[in-house]
Amino acid sequence: MIGFKDVTRIYDNMTALRKVNFGIGKGEFVYITGPSGAGKSTLLKLIYLAEKPDEGTISIAGWETDTLRESAIPYLRRNIGVVFQDFKLLVNRTVYDNIALALRIRGFGETEIKGRVQDALKLVGLRHKNDNFPAALSGGEQQRITIARAIVGEPTVLLADEPTGNLDVDNAAGIMKIFKEINAKGTTILIATHNRELFRNTGLRVLWFDNGNLVADKEG
């Protein structure tokens, strides 16, 4: 599903990722961890093509980044749901419109959008927040809306960057439960986090990064 081959990413003179190699199969649940500046967020950005590798090749759901045309990037992104660390919700749109946006971009009709948005909101437990604006929601609720928006288009891969970073323990547990439910439906999930408690004793795969290097690939 996702493959990194000798991937290097350099910002000015700082190497964020150095000759990284790994592969992730369909339906896997993988954590990416490491200290701040280890290259976790960069790795996710490379997967959803917000950035391009300086060296090496990334393959995502059959697409190869080095041969991918600029005009094809939007179509690749539609296969990837992203839960951003800073949520990236549109403050002047309601919860419904924020989630529906992902489907409108894909050209879905309003009837189908309505059904899918309701399903996504049900999954994250916020059906009653349909008409609220993001500013009226708590951090945990905003995170759930971001997840709902990420999964509403039924992507094959779901990426989450520090999804529990700003949340209390209960909210974080709730969010992780949602991710497990999504993964159970066959979606490949990658979660970047520095919180080791999230994957301790889960038996799930963890990619350990330090200073841009993949230093370990083992079970949590």
Binding site: P74, V82, K88, I105
Partner: peptide, 15 residues
């Protein structure tokens, strides 16, 4: 900012 979000969600340039 809004356009950036559109792009990340898979919006084409035409959209």
């Amino acid at each position: 900012e809004e356009i950036e979000i559109f792009k990340l969600l898979g919006a084409t340039k035409g959209f």
